[in-house]
Nucleic acid binder design. Sequence first.
RNA 1: GGAGAGGUGGCAGAGUGGUUGAAUGCACCUGAUUCGAAAUCAGACGUACCUUCGCGGGUACCGGGGGUUCGAAUCCCUCCCUCUCCGCCA
Length: 425
Amino acid sequence: MLQLKVIREEKQRIVSGLRKRNWAAQQLRVIDRIIDTDELRRSTQKELDDALAEGNRLAKSIGQLMAQGKKDEAETLKTQVATLKVKSASLEEKLNGLKTQLDDLLYSVPNCPHKSVPKGKTPEENKVAKDWTKPFPTLPENALPHWELAKQYNLFDLELGVKLTGAGFPVYRGKGARLQRGLIQFFLDEAVKAGYEEILPPHLVNEDTARGTGQLPDKEAQMYKCELDNLYLIPTAEVPVTNIMRDEIVPVKDLPVKMTAYTPCFRREAGSYGAHVRGLNRVHQFDKVEIVQIEHPDRSYKALQGMVRHVEKIMNKLELPYRILLLCGGDMGFSSAKTYDFEVWSAAQKRWLEVSSVSCFETFQANRMKLRYRDENGKLELAHTLNGSALALARIVAAILENNQTPEGIRLPKVLWKYTGFKMI
RNA sequence: GGAGAGGUGGCAGAGUGGUUGAAUGCACCUGAUUCGAAAUCAGACGUACCUUCGCGGGUACCGGGGGUUCGAAUCCCUCCCUCUCCGCCA
């Protein structure tokens, strides 16, 4: 969530930022409500503190009077304390109410887009930051989409997944499973080479963790929940990995903190059905290698560029046609201040598929998580968090299969040979 | 699943109702000493919120929540977690 202090002190910047997210005047009123509620909260806090301070003073006096045997005087003070307690109890109730109200309001406000984020409402208004200028792969006449190729070569089986679990849970097998494992290994190796610490986190997280990265309270429906144990299946490695730093204070010399993790990702996605979600385009469980950075506010956007380059490098090694989009305000995620999406060209479906999303959250996540660093002067400041997929498997697999199909079989990019143990499918 | 023990500041570890936000040790930071370092000595050393131009002041926090009391780290209730032993098990 946004910092109160920032809303208070830089209201205009926040308001114009939210306009980029197409917030109407009506919605923008929430900012004033926040400021008003906060003001009331502060004055109530002051009143309560004063009442409690008075109570503390009286309690001490009573103690002293009792020690001196002045029972009567002590009794008089006790009645004073009693009325004071009634007062502070009601003030406390009021204060708690205001705090809850304020939190609810704050939770409802998305991150303020960075000044470089373009205006826009829909995905069509995203800016192409880097286009694919070379020709697309040319496929044979009878080129197949990946779900047909999967059948032909026995790579993954969605019907079998239905039998075992339900729709959207692919069963990979044979060379398909092997390719999956090879890609994971390849992505992790690339991340480790780039200085990320490899993490293998739990795939189930508790409520506090889900709240830390903002899945709760709003996006509860996106996650699978183990009701009995009150745990959530992670929708992305970002959740457990970023939360490693929750409530931590990092010495400034330790920044940036760079972590990478492979995990399966589970998403309920009460989304659409139809041709464009066929095959691996959208599934409930997929594999992903995530990269996460905790950075100093002065360097976070440089780090964002670094992460974009990292993903680019991988795309190049996989010899896949890709483009990079700078998301417009209207298409950005709730928590993000700036996001680049990577799309891979799926030659048989003849469309772009999103395979990576790299974002800087500034202090939006850190504020909720209380993730701070101690600067050179010993002052505590909120750190910036960033993350990105490097990369999401299912759609990359789709693209690799489709783009490299030949009458003789599917040719794998050279970089994967040592990971899969085979060059062709 | 059964039995027991326990959760206190970065760590270790005192503290069973009264000026205790918390002894002591270690770590960290600053200064002195030193050519420099070690050792030694002195000092500083939690977080959040409120308040103040600033110095400072106030409030809350000893796993979470609730209660008893004029007053709770200390008593009571409840939840969570950790550890040990047994059982089960990849």
